[in-house]
Amino acid sequence: MDDNKTPAQDIFERWRSITSARIGLMRSGQGISTRVMLEFQIAFAQARDAVHSRLDTAALANALGSDTIVTHSAAPDRIAYLMDPGLGRRLASDAVIAGDAFEAVIVVADGLSATAVQRHAPEIVHALRAHMSDWKIAPIVIAEQARVAIGDDIGSRFGADLVIVLIGERPGLSAADSVGAYLTWAPLVGRSDSERNCVSNIRHPGGLHPQIGAANIAWLAEAARGGRLTGIGLKDRFVGPAELESTTPPSIGDDPNAG
């Protein structure tokens, strides 16, 4: 390959440990060099594959290490899930979810990346349990082919004050394993997105560290309990310990300029 370095790219060395953004790429004319283009295609192929990955519910339940309930949305398969989001927001008609009045329910949902929750949900859940020891928390619900709003259905069946949905975010090129956390006070089918708070990009390495993510979620949960609401009326004023933020380079294309 005909790639050659330019002086400009060297100035980005110092930031490569801070950001996985594709900065300082080698140019060919106005465009990018062959090597850079092909590295993009590797990442794209990996992201496409992550979208179609399947949740291993047994392994996940084992890693969560406590009472769990495995359930399924109304979407029979991934294609139906992708083409009709409504199916992923509802429980399957044969789903059995009910329980005593719990204060909080934690739902672990595959979303658009089962890889993400498979990898990070256990650490987040363990940390949440520690932070939220004064909450009466229902058994953890594992939901397949699920979207965020499935938490409304699940939370209301438990009569819970708060539902926390940990869900695999849409895979990007540098991160196919980001978890998003959505908090909804007084979950009820039909809640709108503006009635939720979100902590996004939880992953390690490269994103918001699961420990900090969990602390942020717990902060929001406490604030939600205080104000008895979530959504745009609840401003996220959590201040995380900056020194714990992830600073590890991305796993894909560590050295995008290697010629």
Partner: peptide, 21 residues
């Protein structure tokens, strides 16, 4: 977007180079 890869929103948009092209 650097290299067309938005590392926060997890989607592909146009890059600085695309605009130059």
């Amino acid at each position: 977007v650097p290299g067309a890869d938005d590392i926060m929103l997890n989607y592909q948009s146009t890059s600085f180079h695309d605009a130059l092209y």
